[in-house]
Amino acid sequence: MNGVHDMGGAQNFGPVAPEPDEPRFHAPWERRAFALTLAVGSARRWNLDQARSARESLPPAQYLASSYYRIWLDGLCALMLERGMVTREELADGRMHEPPARPFGVLAADKVTAVLARGGSTARAVAGEARFHVGDAVRTREINPPTHTRLPRYCRGKRGTVVMLHGAHVFPDANARGTGEDPQWLYTVRFEGAELWGADTSATAVHVDCWEPYLERA
């Protein structure tokens, strides 16, 4: 989706504001919003790409005006509403009016450490061989799907060179639609700064991780 979350190359957002000795969280609610997002997400009612898609689908003005934990919180509420886990009335008054969705895999306190340590590898075994190899010249496809994708707008239709092959990984464009993981070969592609931006850049090169369906031979 060509949304406001796809920010690479946008201008006029002002200077970066590093904060000396920044605390991990800036308000009590950020701690709880962070933990709620992880805990509810661990029940796998949605996948990682659907969670990202929900955040990107927030109204553009709201997304731009929100702190990042606010985006997580609003994304979480949208996902729970969409799946019938909560109702708008329940979110408004904080009380249960409808029975909970069952079964629900609650993250138990004694499982947290193991769940975090295990993580969630996106590497998958696939048959066949990767189409491209390190050193190959490639071009990103000019795609504009209205659904979730991880190919940023600034590097569509651009020529680059494959610098790494990471094996096959879950393909976000498919996984976000709920049509299965559809694992695809994943590459890191180097784009010269001038290829992306002409003369108006101080980057020598920008590297983007690209799944095979994003690429064609240059």
């Binding site: 962070f34 029940a43 909970p100 499982k111």
Partner: peptide, 14 residues
Amino acid sequence: EKGYVDPQALDILI
């Protein structure tokens, strides 16, 4: 209340 989260798990995550 809906049984979706264990508050102690939240504390450990934080």
